[in-house]
Amino acid sequence: MTTWITICDTCKREDWDAASGDLTDGEVLAELIENRADGDVKTRRVSCLMGCTRSCNVAIQGAGKLNYTLGEFTPNDTSADAIVEYARLHAESETGQVPYRQWPQGVKGHFITRHPPLPDDE
């Protein structure tokens, strides 16, 4: 089943310099994640996940599964690798819950929220 990584592309860490004209930290992380995601892991960008004090933020989401918000990432290869690997494990999980012992090291300590799946309309 498909897992989506929703990436905040407006995230800026405290040390981001607006005068530099460079990409936001969220845009850098988004590009790194997009270059790694494939198969059952898809990506989309949004402008603001409202976690500004914990940027860079992503949401790991799948229909009928537990969904997670993660943040406080450094926009680099290590973070992108860990986020995509966790999303692959989420995609493989029937419920969206991934046992802690399977978590990539790079996502440990980055979980902000967990959301239960939406109830069926019936």
Rank of each mutant, 00 (worst) to 15 (best):
T2G: 00
T3C: 14
T3M: 03
W4C: 00
T6F: 00
I7T: 11
D9E: 13
C11M: 05
K12Q: 11
K12W: 00
R13N: 12
R13M: 10
R13A: 07
E14K: 15
E14Q: 11
E14G: 07
E14F: 03
E14C: 03
D15V: 06
D15L: 06
D17R: 13
D17E: 14
D17M: 09
A19I: 02
S20I: 08
S20C: 05
D22N: 11
L23R: 15
L23V: 02
T24E: 07
T24N: 01
E27M: 12
V28C: 07
V28E: 12
A30Y: 15
A30M: 03
E31W: 00
L32V: 01
I33S: 07
E34G: 02
E34Q: 12
N35W: 00
A37H: 11
D38C: 06
G39C: 12
G39I: 07
D40V: 08
D40L: 11
K42N: 12
T43P: 01
V46N: 05
C48Q: 06
C48R: 05
M50C: 04
M50Y: 11
G51P: 00
G51R: 12
C52E: 10
C52A: 08
T53E: 14
T53Y: 08
C56F: 01
N57M: 13
V58Y: 09
A59T: 04
I60F: 01
I60V: 13
I60W: 02
Q61G: 02
Q61S: 13
G62F: 10
G62D: 04
K65P: 09
K65W: 03
N67H: 01
N67T: 00
N67D: 13
N67F: 01
T69H: 13
T69E: 10
T69A: 04
T69I: 13
T69V: 14
L70C: 07
L70W: 13
L70M: 15
G71W: 04
E72L: 06
E72A: 12
T74K: 13
D77V: 04
D77M: 02
S79G: 06
A80I: 02
A80Y: 01
D81C: 01
A82H: 02
A82V: 01
I83P: 09
I83S: 05
V84L: 07
E85S: 06
A87I: 11
A87Y: 08
R88V: 01
R88T: 04
A91K: 03
S93V: 05
E94G: 14
E94N: 08
E94M: 08
T95A: 06
T95H: 02
Q97P: 00
V98Q: 08
P99N: 07
Y100H: 11
Y100S: 09
R101W: 07
Q105F: 04
V107H: 10
K108R: 14
H110C: 13
H110F: 06
F111C: 14
F111N: 11
I112C: 12
I112H: 11
I112D: 10
T113K: 05
T113L: 08
R114S: 13
P116N: 11
P116D: 10
P116S: 13
P116R: 14
P117T: 05
L118H: 14
L118E: 13
L118F: 12
L118T: 07
P119I: 03
P119K: 11
D120E: 15
D120Y: 08
D120N: 14
D120H: 14
D121M: 05
D121Q: 09
D121Y: 02
E122V: 11
E122A: 13
E122D: 15
